[in-house]
Design a protein around this nucleic acid. Structure first.
Lengths: 140, 140
DNA sequence: ATGATATTGATAATGCAATATCATATAAAT
DNA sequence: ATTTATATGATATTGCATTATCAATATCAT
């Protein structure tokens, strides 16, 4: 079994901050890439280890969207949903909830406890016509 | 590369029928289990092979719900959503669509092309008080 | 500044779903 | 009924995400 966090390291500071400041849940690879732009030597094992520790400490939680790997977000974000860009695969939070079926009982004995809504389409970066600015990211 | 279907076999008939008659998309393991109750010798490789063939023939399509493996449903089912039981993990179709954000452009350049709604809770089998009938299935 | 030990980075090992292999069985045309 | 290529079942292999290992490094109480 693993143990709780005892020391503050640059790696953990960076990963924690990246997750806290992200506009949506981040994948392991996205985290690794962003963190390495600040600390190039950071290894993938540290990302996995830190995610597990932060999850056990209830600081973050995993979200899994249709068709995708696990992504991680701060656990203090309230009820919300996600938009996933089919071009760059990035995920952005959507605070509006279009559903009203909480804690309700449906016709035949189905009890709805929660729900997940994922909007799929193009994010601003990828829906914009190819401009003279930064190139459209195909993968993050 | 694989090739198209040329012969009708009992295995393929069974798998096709199971998918067509299911109340929701089936996982590989669910398919294997159900099919083996009719044809015990059926192997897992045949399930994968047949799913791939049926998908290439556009007879079925994969759906992936939050947190889950691929499931398979007939491709001629129209727009609908899914209910997943957190106890037995089975998935049942829900024909009602509570969303109206198709092909729309949201505030900042987000283009919504489609969406996935997954209701999570308890199915009739698992929400019912422990009765004297069949035991509650924990896994399918 | 030092020392004890938690943490890291590189990489090997693991777990598991999906695929490939191949001898045997089967469909269906003759 | 024969024949021949397709399909199957058992199982080995692959691919890939995650975890374990371990020597080297960094944190922090002293």
């Amino acid at each position: 079994m693993s143990v709780s966090i005892q020391r503050n390291t640059r790696q953990r500071e960076i990963l924690r901050r990246l997750i806290a400041e992200a506009p949506g849940p981040l994948s392991v690879q996205e985290l690794l890439g962003s963190a390495q732009s600040e600390l190039p030597a950071l290894g993938i094992a540290t990302v996995y280890r830190t995610l597990k520790l932060l999850e056990e400490a209830k600081e973050i939680r995993a979200v899994v969207l249709p068709g995708g790997e696990s992504r991680w977000e701060p656990s203090d974000r309230g009820h919300h949903h996600h938009f996933q860009c089919r071009a760059c695969t990035r995920v952005i939070d959507f605070l509006v909830c279009p559903l009203h079926v909480h804690s309700d009982t449906l016709p035949n004995g189905f009890v709805v406890e929660t729900h997940e809504v994922t909007l799929i389409g193009l994010c601003p970066d990828c829906s914009a016509p190819p401009a003279r600015k930064a190139p459209v990211r195909k993968k993050v």
